[in-house]
Amino acid sequence: MSVSPLTRDEHSAEFFDAAARGVLLLRWSTECGGYLPPAAVICPCAPLAPLEWREASGLGEVVTWTVIPVRGTDAVPPTVVAYVELAEGPWITVRVRGIDPAKLRAGHPVRIGFETPEGGGETIPIALPPHPG
């Protein structure tokens, strides 16, 4: 799998700084107190109200997932990608590590961890088994 193509920009700098510290940030509406996905630019409840970054619990559950084989080889494990519903409500798209894909189900609990691509680039969130170890 190729390394992360991500390069930070002004909007995402705080998110990636926190990710590098192992903290997941979500957008948070100062108006309704609801949490929004990291890429959100407004809250529909109050489109003109500012959003802030807030720390998320890092806990969630799998909504759905896909297992993508690497073509031409069985030696490389498949890529497992999931939509995870965070405890705060927003969904994020994450690579799943350390969970047998055959055991995945809708509702499977996960804990958000982080990884930095080998070749460098921004640290990104991933889904891990709910209990460390």
Binding site: L6, H11, P38, A39, R95, E122
Partner: peptide, 15 residues
């Protein structure tokens, strides 16, 4: 539009 919109692709969701 934003680097954050690239998170799904970075996670491997590329097709």
């Amino acid at each position: 539009a934003s680097a954050l919109d690239g998170l799904p692709r970075a996670a491997g969701l590329d097709s």
